[in-house]
Design a protein around this nucleic acid. Structure first.
Lengths: 335, 335
DNA sequence: ATGAAAGCGCTAACAG
DNA sequence: CTGTTAGCGCTTTCAT
């Protein structure tokens, strides 16, 4: 593999000139630049990022932290971020820290130390120690899924989105509304889901409708969890007429449970989800759509801007949500 | 950020000793090793991978190529690979090359050249030029989704799996069987899907049942594509009594189409998918399960083995599939 | 506009 | 067992 020195020799110039020419830096005549480029191309030269990184201190890589890659939501956010980073010429180092062990190890060893120019944290709730540890890295930081001091933050109005969903049910005349939430707030949980819960209670309070505790279920943000939660709710002596699921995947699970019980949606029970999962459309699920890919992309952009400007100033962006009404709450299409 | 030299000075030894001590190399007394470790820890030292990489030529990083991250299947395979790589102490550089533009750019610039120790290609069908380009990298190569010369390859018996599915339908007495395939073979398509098609024809031939061309639909491997394909098939003058979808996601789409048409599954039309998608269980979809995460994990392992041994010998592994029968073909659970 | 030379932080002989 | 030293391939003054 050709080195810069070989290219320099072949082109009859110094390594400094090659370096300048290839990086579009000023101070090289157009003729020389062309020649260097041609020679480099012919020799199939490619820069050693290690050497370049060592010399400059910049790596042109950004580290991306995600709890999972195997769930729809995270895959989408990651895809959005990846696209932006890639087209800016940055490489992406992926760290999946969903399990406690991997997470602990990651923050202990911090394998990305000195090997990324910036870090992007995707919908992963960090403890104070963890976020401090990242701040110590002294590189631009980005965060998706909430507000975070010292991080360029991108999030959606979860409370507003939740209100949208619940008010929609209320407007349909429902008063007996169940809720399927993600689960007990733990290290993985973000403010976001919690906001959606609060929205539920607030919207209910707005209409002075009491919340029935046995209609609140934990769905673990998974399809099967949603199904279990729905079954548990159905086991109550009273049956709700509507359900607000805090993620579409849980809503899908709930819908399956209802189908098993031969309960008609929306006739007997209406259901609304949250996310805008690709399958919500053909499932006929009403849902609060959030711009998932854009959340990742925007965070990446903020990071890049900070990187270019070398500033320490972080920015916050709130992205919009939108209620999409389908047959699971109105029944007026043919589903 | 502390350098090795500062650590050396603080510990009262040479940089060489620090280097040896920290990398568990022989030739350092236990006392010294301990002291160095303590000092390094106190100073919050962490190695510069750039410097280390430059000196050794090894990066402890592996590049992973995927067409998408935002689809279930790819997310799973990636997750499997990531886990293995991480626990072996390798960092993962992610390259998403699903779109033609990004792909073209990737293979032209080969950003991972000189910055990874190995490359893993996940279910991405490579042209001859593309795979040659990777071979030129002269690092261990891995491939998931088919056999590939010069690559450690991991795949499943797609033909056998397809036979499993179709024979299952035939054994239920079906003769009027439709098929929803991924689409025209293009750059993204792998041998795998094609094998499943062949299996369909072979199984039908086995029973001397002619294939009705208007019952073959293109579903683009997506949920909505599966729905469209099913609708097109239903537009035929004759209606099949069973459908073989080459992915679960397309099967989901097809099931939704059937529901819209008020066609009972499996009573009027039975359906079997392929993959073992997490949602197949609660959808009651019969499917050919493949060990998705394991495919990624196994490929990563093969790669690591080759890396450790420094050998040039690649290995092939075929992973098993299994037919899981649910209500979409038998109707004997309560779905 | 171009080149010479001094690092960047680490590892790997080679000595001792 | 430990230290000295010469790079690894690039970038960046500082000269010319």
């Amino acid at each position: 593999m050709a080195t810069i020195e070989e290219v320099a020799r072949a082109a009859g110039v110094s390594t400094a000139t090659v370096s300048r020419a290839l990086r579009q830096q000023p101070g090289v005549s157009e003729r020389t630049r062309q020649r260097v480029r041609t020679v480099a191309e012919e020799m199939n030269y490619s820069i050693s990022r290690s050497a370049s990184g060592l010399a400059t201190g910049r790596t042109r890589r950004v580290g991306v932290l995600v709890p999972f890659v195997s769930r729809w939501f995270f895959g989408q956010v990651l895809a959005g971020a990846e696209e932006v980073l890639r087209s800016a010429g940055y490489d992406l180092m992926l760290y999946v820290v969903g399990d406690e062990e991997g997470r602990e190890r990651f923050f202990r060893e911090l394998p990305l130390r000195r090997s990324v120019d910036a870090v992007l944290v995707l919908t992963l709730s960090l403890s104070t120690e963890e976020s401090d540890r990242l701040r110590e890295l002294d590189v631009p930081l980005g965060f998706v899924g909430g507000r975070m001091d010292g991080f360029n933050s991108v999030w959606i109005d979860d409370h507003g989105g939740g209100m949208l969903a619940v008010r929609h049910l209320l407007n349909q005349g429902h008063t007996d509304i169940a809720m399927i939430h993600g689960g007990a707030p733990d290290a993985l949980n973000l403010p976001a889901p919690h906001e959606r819960c609060t929205a539920f209670r607030d919207a209910m309070a707005e209409h002075e409708i009491p919340v029935r505790e046995s209609w609140l279920g934990t769905g673990d943000f998974s399809v099967s969890g949603g199904r279990r939660a729905m079954n548990r709710i159905l086991a109550d002596e009273l049956r709700p007429t509507a359900v607000f699921a805090m993620s579409d995947e849980m809503a899908f699970g709930a819908m399956h449970a209802l189908r098993n019980h031969k309960i008609h949606v929306p006739g007997e029970i209406a259901i609304v989800g949250f996310d805008g999962h690709e399958m919500s459309e053909c499932s006929g699920l009403s849902t609060v759509v959030q711009p998932v890919r854009q959340e990742g992309g925007t965070a990446a952009k903020l990071l890049l801007e900070q990187l270019e400007q070398g500033s320490t100033e972080t920015r916050d962006v709130v992205l919009p949500t939108e209620l999409v009404v389908r047959s699971s709450t109105t029944g007026d299409d043919s589903m």
